[in-house]
Write a protein that binds this DNA or RNA. Structure first.
Lengths: 338, 338
DNA sequence: ATGAAAGCGCTAACAA
DNA sequence: TTGTTAGCGCTTTCAT
């Protein structure tokens, strides 16, 4: 175990004060170039590394940003995180990532832990369950910037980065209608979350705009877990009116649907057209290719990261902004062709 | 901005010493239940939260574990991370995650940053480029535990968690042979990395064991990026001996191969059988279903996390262990059926 | 251009 | 059971 060397050690070695060493190391203007060089040299020679614990304590900041996501292992989420990490790392920050596993309880614990560990800001995408804001007031009351992305809270005081899910849901549905579908099933995630409820809104609006009345039976609230595809298949087979289009709020689940439907003898897109959501890699692999909504995860991550950094640097003030909406895009592929 | 309350504030309020407050808060045995209750109450009432910066400084540890991965946005990696996060969070640690983006340069910077920020341990999966160990000696020399997973270094002093890639490569190849393939192409990642070089070894061994001589032309070193499938297609079409089997070191890339080959008129598995690696979600979606090697990412993450925690707690000593090898499994699906 | 010294908030050894 | 006090290593104000 190599004993750690501090600025005091260096100051003794160099016969200068600790303050000078500190300044030298931090490139303070009032230190002569010569002294700086000596300090730098000695630091390198003795393997000095700054003790961030002490720096954090004095400055009361950690250069660390907390993230809470529902789960790490999702194509979309990992893409978002990749974007965040990239911009945040570039400016010397680190990302502390934790997952709520869709549990409000764990989300609360995570929020508390991250608060405790002194993150300078928090980025959150909410769990399925979360229905109140209480675990975040510790942040706002301490003026720790808070930003929600993707799965957000409908509160005016929350700064958010997301896409226009309602419009996207509308476009997806309308695309199916334009392709000739008249009895469209919508497979949704939990309506508690904005992303799903808004897509659902868009779906209904598109129906209405095209004079198709919404049928309760054509709506399925699920947890979008491909392992639970059976229920959906049963629903489709048992529906009184033949379903000729499906709008699924996730590509993974949509791909599973295509797979199962094909197995059951349905022809896609002739019998049933399917459109997904996200533009995951899987949408290009499944046969037929899955039409979908391109959801710019990487960009969302970058934007969330950039916004929080800009705010921390005092360049912009999030409080004046309510939401940043990213551009989505309808991707037409074989699964919805005429 | 709510002024932060310290143990000194509480000690004044309660007319006890700061030490008592500290002890009370930390449930020290020598503090009376009554005093503890008083302290807890006051803490809650005044919204006290412990200042981790000070604790870290005093204890010289951060309860934080650093992770460096090649990229966050990969199915496999995000699964590993999900496993890690779960076990590590449960015992009160946090994960600081950074990505090298396959660059040795960035990996070095990340390693330094994480060292600086005072992680208690480091978990690493190496970038494609990395060829030397230098950026990790800062850790070993400071006795900061270091663990490599998946993409590791072939050094005796490195503690690693991985699967037996050679055996897995062997099994994948032999499976193709058993299914009747005689001219098998192997599409690999960069041989610099153990995971790919060992699978390649396994491939060659399986050929040899079955009296098939290895052809240089049947080996393709790539970066496994599905976007660069063209080169592979060209190779297959131009090969003098008809290729009847492909062993791809990644499911994503294998799925893309199936997709492209089918488009070009090849029948899978009749003309060419394909086997992938990882057992990603996509392997079940592509048509025909992709045979593959099940690679227990989540378990690998959990194991890496558990090992490092056990080591930090002094329960096991990593230095006595060299490698933990996880069980893999051949998954036979349609893409290799006779 | 450099130094002295206080302070960041907590823990723990030693005393009482 | 509780208190006193000396750090942990760095930054920064005020002197020089």
């Amino acid at each position: 175990m190599q004993k750690k060397v501090t600025i005091y050690d260096l100051s003794k070695i160099l016969n200068v004060s600790p303050a000078t060493v500190s300044r030298g190391l931090n490139d303070h203007p009032s230190i002569s170039a010569k002294t700086k060089k000596r300090i730098a040299l000695a630091a390198k020679k003795h393997g000095y590394i700054t003790n961030k614990f002490a720096v954090n304590l004095t400055k009361q900041k950690s250069n660390t940003i907390g993230v809470i996501v529902p789960r790490l292992n999702s194509y979309f989420m990992s893409t978002v995180l990749a974007g965040m990490e990239q911009v945040i790392n570039k400016v010397g920050y680190n990302l502390i990532i934790s997952q709520s596993l869709e549990s409000e309880e764990k989300e609360k614990i995570n929020a508390k832990t991250l608060l405790n560990s002194g993150v300078d800001a928090l980025l959150v995408s909410l769990s399925y369950e979360t229905s109140n804001y209480d675990h975040f007031i510790d942040y706002t009351s301490r003026n720790i910037p808070l930003l929600f992305f993707d799965r957000v809270l409908n509160l005016p005081e929350c700064y958010t980065v997301l896409i226009d899910n309602k419009a996207a849901g509308y476009e997806a549905t309308e695309h199916l209608i334009h392709q000739g579908c008249t009895n469209i099933l919508h497979i949704s995630g939990h309506l508690k979350r904005n992303v799903y409820s808004e897509r659902f809104e868009g779906y209904k609006n598109a129906l209405q705009a095209n004079n198709i009345s919404f049928q309760e039976a054509n709506f399925l609230e699920t947890d979008l877990n491909p392992k639970k595809i059976d229920r959906v298949m049963k629903h489709i087979k048992n529906s009184t009116n033949k379903i000729d289009g499906i709008f699924v709020s996730s590509d993974n689940f949509a791909a599973s649907c295509i797979k199962e439907l094909t197995k059951e003898g349905y022809r896609i897109p002739e019998d049933i057209k399917v459109i997904g959501f996200n533009n995951d890699f899987v949408s290009e692999i499944v046969s037929p290719n899955l039409s979908t909504i391109d959801y710019p995860g990487f960009k969302m991550g970058m934007l969330a990261g950039e916004s929080i950094i800009a705010h921390l640097n005092g360049n912009i003030n999030l409080e004046s902004i309510n939401a940043i909406t990213l551009r989505h895009k309808l991707i037409k592929r074989e699964s919805t062709s005429k």
